[in-house]
Amino acid sequence: MSRLATLSDEQLIEEALKGSEAHFDVLVERYTPQIYRLARGITNSHSEAEDVVQETFLKIFKNLNKFSSDKANFKTWALTIARNQSINTLASIKRKALQFFGDREDDDPEPDFSFNPMSSEAQDAETLMSLKQRFYQLEGALKKIPERQKTALILKTQENMSYEEIANVMSVSVSSVESLIFRGRKKLIELLEK
């Protein structure tokens, strides 16, 4: 791990604001996976999610001087921007699909995750295959639930955020997050039963 990678978000931002691209790059490395996963969950598309990651970091870069660590932590701020970017992208995908008449299946058919060899479950190729298959099946069901339920579920299950942190990203109350996640789970169970 490089020395910079041990710095806190706030320290990295401070140096980035003084003009250090190297410090900003560490933020990019640190948050690309999380932003990608959220964007992919919302847009259902690998290529759109990659675009969202790029656009999100450009916005973060341009607005870094407006970030205030008193009001939010960087992760919450970055995921809020990523979510809004994803929602806009999703809206434009839907507009385009309408122009071409009908419900185009807009996701990429190829598996586009690469496996993280550091994880313990990676040792077992069969477990991985079955997990991947089940993940793609679940992604199919995720497409059919409302964005807010999906976002709350993704931030909980993939990013392990608390209800309170999720409430901050989504600008809703903690009890709304609780209810969104509950309804999302119920709906996913129903959809997977069919």
């Binding site: 690309t32 996976p33 990608y36 996963r37 992919r40 999610a49 990659e50 990651v53 586009d112 995750f113 690469s114 496996f115 993280n116 994880s119 479950e121 990676a122 991985l128 997990l131 991947k132 089940r134 993940f135 679940l138 579920l153 993704i154 299950t157 993939q158 789970r185 996913l188 169970i189 997977l192």
Partner: peptide, 17 residues
């Protein structure tokens, strides 16, 4: 469902991104 959703963590995005 939680376990499967969580497995997305194991499947990291392309490092070139």
């Amino acid at each position: 469902i939680n376990h499967v959703l969580n497995s997305a963590i194991l499947m990291a995005p392309n490092t070139a991104l």
